[in-house]
Design a protein around this nucleic acid. Structure first.
Lengths: 275, 275
DNA sequence: CGTGCCACCATGGTCCGACCAAAACCCCCG
DNA sequence: CGGGGGTTTTGGTCGGACCATGGTGGCACG
């Protein structure tokens, strides 16, 4: 049992506050001394929490006061905490994570397919074979997808992929919205089409083909999931085809809103490129 | 001038030691008290450094002693420090980063292309136009590639991509081996072929095509770079087509070796899957 | 009344020393 | 040779203290 220390609890609290948008970017957060009395701990404890926040990239601490850092400086690691912010995570965030996950897996599939040795290839095909077996629950199915993804990463031999992977991969399992909970799974025929494509890709070491297969496959499930969550959470029938036209009349979470706005438009702020 | 604090210096020192493989995974690193006297600072300063290391995912600190964490727990953020470990970074690492970067950019291109609005599309084409201009140094060229990549990320509207991006993107600029220093750049014709493909992809909002174009383009440069660095640093003529057959008779850096081995084979260690 | 300078205060960075609980270690006993 | 219990070490936290710096308000001057 990993007894959670006070400093990490405090760090988690502050981190979530920041991610939730309690403090706007650039805003000063309370002084170490203030927080120390507020939390009833010694200042050095708060201090350690601050160091974590800084390393996470969500805060910048400097004489004069610690300030909330812009999202550009945050670590990829914040993704998991974004998902864990609320009991039922923001569907928008979930969707973005799934989208990135699809892309990541496509990348892994490409590199893994190109590099896999015979044994790895066999293992990959084995998993794919298991996936085509009928009677698989969504749970086991997504388990296999994860497994497959891991094997691709492994076969790619690329450590950077590995690192990206475990900042992304398991984080959805925590949430109620992880893979495996859609009421309207994609059609079996469609899935199998992509699976077959993937088999061919692996057998011929065609990275591009594998990449496409995985991406399309992921997209199928992602779409099911999105439809489910959006219909459950709210009711926006439009297919988000026009991102910037979206009302964005959201609930709370200014940080996320800012993140989206930043990721979406962003350019207007710093229009003139360099050079 | 960001005056670097003692705790961050110490954290950096320890981090580099760990990444360099001075301590094997799981090994205990010196106690806070030891390090305090060794560095001539107070224990609490070392302590803050430790918190950073833990947040970075390179160390796990617990009563009884802090231990080096397995690579699986490390943050993507260590990549930049891996590149900065030596004056001339390990070509293997550089190659892996470039490879991941290619994949990432391909992903960004796909999502960005699919989602870009008219303005973003115009901006993308603008950059591509600049890239086809003759007389560009490799420096400016890679600058444009970066810019293009950023715009894709922006157009994708995906915050996760954004986060991944700035853990990956600028880190090569520090090194002597960044894009732009190859003596044998890819042929102009080949490059332009992909650029044209990319233009078509953007105009038709074809994510897959864009992804391919970017990936192939990146690969061109990556190959030139790899050839250059390998010929300069050492002499291994083989094209690394057989990863596991590679002698791996490297110099030092057990951590990286472990990373590679882990990412490459890995499976044998934990053979039996779950479920 | 407006403006610029300066002292003051809050803040982070670091240090000292101390206590506790748990893990690690070691030696002695069976 | 193995196991058990006590000792040592280690991290977690605390209280307080000093310093340099940056922010801020007030005071004197124009």
């Amino acid at each position: 049992m990993p007894t959670t220390t006070q400093d990490s609890s405090i760090a988690a609290l502050l981190r979530d506050d920041i991610l939730r948008g309690q403090y706007r970017c650039g805003e000063r957060l309370p002084s170490e001394r203030d927080l120390a009395v507020r939390f009833g701990v010694h200042r050095s404890t708060v201090r350690e929490a601050f160091k974590r926040l800084e390393q996470l990239g969500v805060a910048r601490i400097a004489p004069g006061g610690a300030r909330v850092a812009p999202l550009e400086e945050a670590s990829l690691d914040i993704v998991e905490h974004l998902l864990a912010l609320d009991d039922v995570p923001d569907p928008e965030i979930v969707d973005q994570v799934l989208e990135a996950l699809s892309g990541f897996r496509a990348m892994a599939a490409r590199l893994g397919t190109e590099r896999a040795d015979a044994g790895q290839r066999a293992r990959l095909l084995e998993i794919l074979d298991a996936m085509t077996r009928s009677g698989l629950g969504n749970e086991q199915y997504s388990e296999l997808v994860s497994e497959l993804s891991d094997r691709f990463v492994e076969a790619s031999g690329n450590m950077v992929l590995r690192l990206m992977g475990h900042s992304l991969r398991p984080k959805l399992a925590h949430t109620r919205l992880g893979y495996g909970l859609f009421s309207d799974p994609p059609s079996r025929a469609e899935v199998e089409k992509h699976l077959e494509q993937l088999v061919r890709a692996i057998e011929s070491a065609d990275g591009t083909l594998a990449s496409e297969a995985i991406y399309d496959l992921s997209r199928l499930f992602r779409r099911s999931l999105r439809e489910r969550s959006t219909s459950a959470e709210r009711s926006l029938p439009e297919e988000r085809a026009l991102p910037e036209a979206q009302p964005m009349a959201d609930v709370h979470e200014p940080a996320l809103a800012a993140a989206r706005a930043g990721a979406r438009s962003g350019r207007s702020a710093r229009a003139g490129g360099r050079s």
